[in-house]
Design a protein around this nucleic acid. Structure first.
Lengths: 213, 213
DNA sequence: GTCTATAGGTTGATAGAC
DNA sequence: GTCTATCAACCTATAGAC
């Protein structure tokens, strides 16, 4: 038996898909209610405004991902490897339905002001700090600046894959796609782990930034 | 003596800034003409539509960057190092005025459909192919898939830095910023070069994808 | 080239019946 | 909770005077 989702869930599902496909500003509430087959006024009843609807769409996907990340990080123990830290950070992201949430997250991430106020401080700051602490334990003695820059590159690579997952085959002649997600995660982890280790290997650039101990 | 830019240039400058700050759909032509202190109808006179204005804004920044990229790639000779290829790809990007163009490019990059049709095919496809060929010469025998995935991670890291350049200090406790751009480029090149070499070092994952020769 | 004026359409949000 | 009807504001694009 197929359970028809209730109005609130149908609005969330449709808003998620359309925000991702067309962007927040380019998606009207009428676009959403037409596809979700609900009444226009239902949006303002269940959510207060278009902005609040956006927040609800985000939180529904991000919160479980972050919970899984922290579980995996805890499971890796007090002295994780670089690969364990990166896998705990990346794998839960690619467990979600990318075709829905990916362009959305990619778009939000690329809007600095919206990202800082409505995403980073609310959902990502604590995660970022936990993973930074874990990576410092995985790379003892590495300059903190190297870890931080590495985190930027890591988030960038992750975001790029999510944002472009739809068109990945089109721009790589069919060579790259997201069909085998564990393999993609493994590939990203291997690439990024090498970068983190190279950043911490004592090049001239970093000598003066090295942390004590 | 201060030369006041002409109407067309003032529109381009203002549109670039506002598209970057607020996004394409969220920026009205009235926002642009008000700040540029030009008449609303001047936009439709000099450019035909809002879409064409966007294209003009993009082309003005992207074309010189791509020209510089190809010059640097040619200067590296027929057998460049991984670092030379990466530097030729990244350095010209960070020569442009990031505070204007960065959020714009980041946002466009994160919209898959808009990116594919209006950006990738028009401005980036030929560049991507040239750099892929150069990287294959820098890493002979590496699987093409590794090169392609590496390119994705590279573009992601670059885009992340451009998109978040404004708020980089805010999310790193002041440790990371874009003030020393050559150092940032050097850091990215070192991180990414290690990733490319790790991707091509013959892990189990890639054995079956290895190219002949 | 630059302006005013306006056409023609869409938007987010709400009031009020049921 | 769900609907209809509607408001006030905003938008892009263009016509036509100068």
């Amino acid at each position: 038996m197929i359970e028809i989702a209730d109005t609130k869930t149908r609005i969330l599902d449709t808003a998620e898909r359309l925000f991702g496909q067309k962007g927040f500003e380019a998606t009207s509430l009428r676009d959403i209610t037409a596809e979700a087959q609900v009444n226009l006024a239902a949006v303002n009843y269940h959510f207060q405004s278009k902005d609040s609807l956006m927040d609800a769409v985000i939180a529904r996907r991000v919160d479980p991902v972050n919970q899984k990340r922290l579980e995996m990080l805890d499971a890796a123990g007090p002295d994780p490897t670089v690969e364990q830290v990166l896998t705990a950070f990346l794998e839960p992201v690619f467990d979600i339905q990318l075709e829905c949430a990916a362009p959305l997250v990619g778009r939000i991430l690329s809007n600095p002001n919206l990202f800082l106020d409505r995403m980073y401080k609310r959902h990502f700051q604590i995660i970022s700090e936990r993973f930074r602490a874990a990576m410092i334990r995985a790379l003892p003695g590495a300059p903190v600046a190297d870890i931080l820059w590495g985190q930027m590159f890591t988030v960038g690579a992750m975001t790029q894959l999510m944002a472009l997952s739809q068109i990945l085959p089109a721009i790589t002649g069919g060579v790259c796609d997201m069909s085998d997600r564990p393999a993609v995660v493994a590939r990203a982890v291997r690439f990024l782990a090498a970068g983190f280790r190279a950043g911490a290997n004592g090049s001239e650039l970093n000598k003066e930034l090295r942390c004590a101990g």
